[in-house]
């Protein structure tokens, strides 16, 4: 087991290397002079030269790549062109809200969706099943910003139960944190609940047709334990796969949700950096998101082996 995890971790190193190469080439291979692209339309020749120096663009490309990798090894993502602050500092400042929102969203949607999907499969063809599926279709069709503003209108403005916008860290008290995070979490979760519930329903429905489910019933097992003890675990591999994909999609959803609720997270940083063409920040964020994604995939692979004894890499 541990040798397997170690092997998987070692196997992620070349993947990280390829990602680093792509991020490096993204800037260098874009048409025209990157320094003048970054500097924008109203830059003077001196400005362009300054940026060129700052990014080390005058060195031979191999030297540049060597420097880039050496930088990365020291966890140095460079300096933001506009704020002149290290990219790592900028990311670290914004990391917490995004991380928290992602975690609450993921937890909330899995806790709601998996039981809902399993219930729908168990009661397939009944009104419960249909209600869950109608909710799922609705959840897919509702844009995040529409739902977000609707929830703000109802719970913050009309009922005045919750704050309208902003973010409070859980380290400064759990209640303010929860009051601020509830609406963004619900907003962002709806689409994931719809997605996870659908896949859970389909997967459980398929497993319920299996011979070993009949065997469990022939043993005199109760329907509840047939569902929870036998069916759900066998249905778990596709569910876990989709949850993993969901984490990748989450990154996109976070950007919109953070704008709606004015949360100072990475989503805002991404938008600002792209608008200002702050390449070091963009590079840093791409690298970080890729790293998170590789980590999530690694965790999913490990979870597979925990679920299914037949899966060995």
């Amino acid at each position: 087991m541990f040798s397997f995890i170690a092997k998987r971790i070692v196997a992620t190193i070349p993947v990280m290397g390829v990602v680093a190469l792509f991020v490096f080439l993204m800037l260098r291979l874009s048409p025209g002079d990157p320094a003048s692209v970054i500097a924008g339309d109203y830059a003077t020749a001196a400005d362009i030269e300054r940026i060129r120096e700052q990014l080390g663009l005058s060195d031979p490309i191999v030297v540049q790549f060597g420097n880039w990798i050496w930088q990365l090894m020291r966890a140095d993502l460079g300096i933001s062109i506009f704020s002149n602050l290290p990219v790592t500092t900028l990311i670290a400042q914004r990391l917490e809200p995004t991380l928290m929102l992602s975690l609450t969203t993921l937890t909330f949607s899995v806790l709601v969706a998996v039981p809902l999907g399993a219930l729908a499969a168990w009661k397939a063809g009944t009104w419960i099943d249909r209600a869950v599926m109608i909710f799922a279709v609705a959840g897919f069709s509702l844009p995040v910003f529409v739902l977000g503003y609707a929830l703000i209108y109802e719970f913050s403005l009309a009922l005045q139960w919750l704050p309208v916008q902003g973010y409070k860290s859980p380290f400064d008290g759990l209640l303010p944190f929860l009051r601020h995070i509830i609406l963004p979490t619900v907003t962002l979760s709806v689409i994931f609940i719809a997605l996870f519930a659908r896949i859970t329903r389909a997967s459980v429905l398929e497993v319920l047709e299996e011979d070993y489910i009949r065997t469990a019933r022939a043993k005199g097992q109760t329907e509840r334990k047939v569902l929870l003890g036998h069916a759900l675990r066998n249905a778990a591999v596709p569910i876990v796969t989709v949850i993993g994909l969901g984490i990748a999609l989450l990154i996109g959803g976070v950007v919109v949700t953070e704008s709606v609720y004015n949360i100072p997270g990475l989503g805002r940083l991404v938008v600002d950096a792209i608008l200002k063409r702050d390449y070091p920040i963009i590079q840093g964020l791409i690298l970080m998101f890729s790293f998170v994604y590789i980590l999530v995939n690694l965790m999913i692979d490990i979870v597979y082996t925990l679920i299914d004894p037949r899966i060995r890499y």
Partner: peptide, 24 residues
């Protein structure tokens, strides 16, 4: 019926390959 199944009467099936839960 659940109390009787597996206790006073039990059943084995055609496909031993699929009749057992692969994860248990």
């Amino acid at each position: 019926m659940r109390a009787l199944r597996g206790a006073r009467m039990s059943m084995i099936f055609q496909e031993p390959m699929t009749a057992l839960n692969p994860l248990m």
